[in-house]
Amino acid sequence: MMRGAKGVAACAGLWMAVTAATAGAQQAADVLSMGGAVTEIVVALGQGHRLRARDATSTWPPEVTDLPDVGYVRALSPEGVLSVEPALILSEEGAGPPEAIDVIRAADLDFVEIPDALTADGILRKIETVGDALGVPDRAAAMSAEVEADLVDAMADAAQPEAEKKRVLFVLSTQGGKINASGTGTAADALIRMAGGVNAVTEYAGYKQITDEAVGLAAPDVILMMDRAGADDTDHGGADDELFAMPAIRLTPAAQSRSVIRMDGLLMLSFGPRTAEAIRRLNAALYAQES
């Protein structure tokens, strides 16, 4: 009888171990991450093994591109998102369209929205929110401390005397020969200021198509653009010769000195764990310093 009881207990223990292992295996790949910075944070927290899928903006680190892609975060389809069967969705603020998000939220899963950020404090809030959602708040706290220190150092090193700051025009696109540029309240605007520059356009908020006259009045010393390597550059500035030949740009100080900086869009605009690196790179490019 004792032997039977021990056998039952052993079997029960084995069953519990198998069940726990199965549950752990299921949890290991239960997260859909949407938003480049969100996905970077998940991986940086050591939770990349839990990712089941990603959105099209999640391209760093490179290994995440092997995951299924549910589409662009602002143009989602409920069918595409739900087809990967996530238990938890971590989504950057502004995912859409709204009707698609309503359907996704109504499904039997956890949906956590990660607040947008245009400041160092905002980046730390992103990390904290992701860490809490993944159940690793201690790791998130340690990571936040490291990221905060790096950001403080990067911004201190990038500081410039007011009179020496370069005027920077961030050009989102040149589609149809028209300049779509950043005003205030954008990630581009925030990064330019963090890197020791001045946004050349402050008359409006967000991104907007502006006139040739407005570009001339902005008088940028430098044109800043996303590096779209491998993409069709026809609508995004193209070669430097084509950029500086545009009527809107050819008379600016930037054209006279042929000053254009192209940076990886995700690094530059996502405001995630690598933002200190983006600050240093942009500052070095603006002021010809060694990074």
Rank of each mutant, 00 (worst) to 15 (best):
Met1Tyr: 14
Gly4His: 15
Val8Trp: 14
Ala10Met: 06
Cys11Lys: 11
Ala17Phe: 12
Val18Leu: 10
Ala21Ile: 03
Ala21His: 11
Ala23Gly: 06
Gly24Trp: 10
Val31Glu: 08
Leu32Met: 05
Met34Ile: 14
Gly35Tyr: 00
Val38Asn: 05
Thr39Pro: 09
Thr39Ile: 07
Ile41Leu: 00
Ala44Pro: 04
Gly46Lys: 01
Gly46Val: 07
Leu51Asn: 00
Trp60Cys: 03
Pro61Ala: 15
Val64Ala: 05
Thr65Asp: 12
Asp66Thr: 12
Ala75Gly: 11
Leu76His: 03
Ser77Gly: 11
Pro78Cys: 02
Val81Ala: 02
Ser83Gln: 06
Val84Asn: 00
Glu85Ile: 03
Pro86Asp: 01
Leu88Trp: 04
Gly96Glu: 04
Gly96Arg: 02
Ile101His: 08
Ile101Phe: 04
Asp102Met: 10
Val103Met: 06
Ala107Met: 02
Leu109Asp: 09
Phe111Tyr: 13
Val112Ile: 12
Glu113Cys: 14
Ala117His: 12
Leu118Thr: 02
Ala120Asp: 10
Ala120Asn: 11
Ala120Lys: 11
Ala120Val: 14
Asp121Val: 04
Ile123Arg: 04
Leu124Asn: 09
Leu124Ser: 12
Lys126Val: 05
Ile127Thr: 02
Val130Glu: 03
Gly131Cys: 06
Gly135Asp: 11
Asp138Met: 08
Ala145Cys: 01
Ala145Gln: 08
Asp153Ala: 13
Ala154Met: 00
Gln160Thr: 13
Glu164Asn: 12
Lys165Asp: 13
Lys166Cys: 07
Val168Asn: 06
Leu169Pro: 11
Ala181Tyr: 05
Gly183Thr: 09
Gly183Asn: 13
Gly183Cys: 08
Thr184Ala: 06
Thr184Arg: 11
Gly185Cys: 07
Ala187Pro: 01
Ala187Asn: 10
Ala190Glu: 04
Ala195Thr: 00
Gly196Pro: 15
Gly196Cys: 09
Asn199Pro: 09
Glu203Leu: 05
Ile210Gln: 09
Ile210Thr: 04
Thr211Lys: 05
Thr211Cys: 09
Ala218Asn: 12
Met225Pro: 09
Asp227Ile: 07
Arg228Gln: 09
Ala229Lys: 15
Gly230Lys: 13
Gly230Pro: 07
Ala231Glu: 15
Ala231Arg: 12
Ala231His: 13
Ala239Pro: 10
Ala239Gln: 10
Asp241Met: 07
Ala245Lys: 07
Arg250Met: 10
Leu251Ile: 05
Thr252Leu: 02
Ala254Trp: 07
Gln256Phe: 09
Ser257Gly: 12
Ile261Pro: 00
Asp264Lys: 03
Gly272Val: 10
Arg274Thr: 07
Ala276Phe: 00
Ala285Met: 03
Tyr287Gly: 00
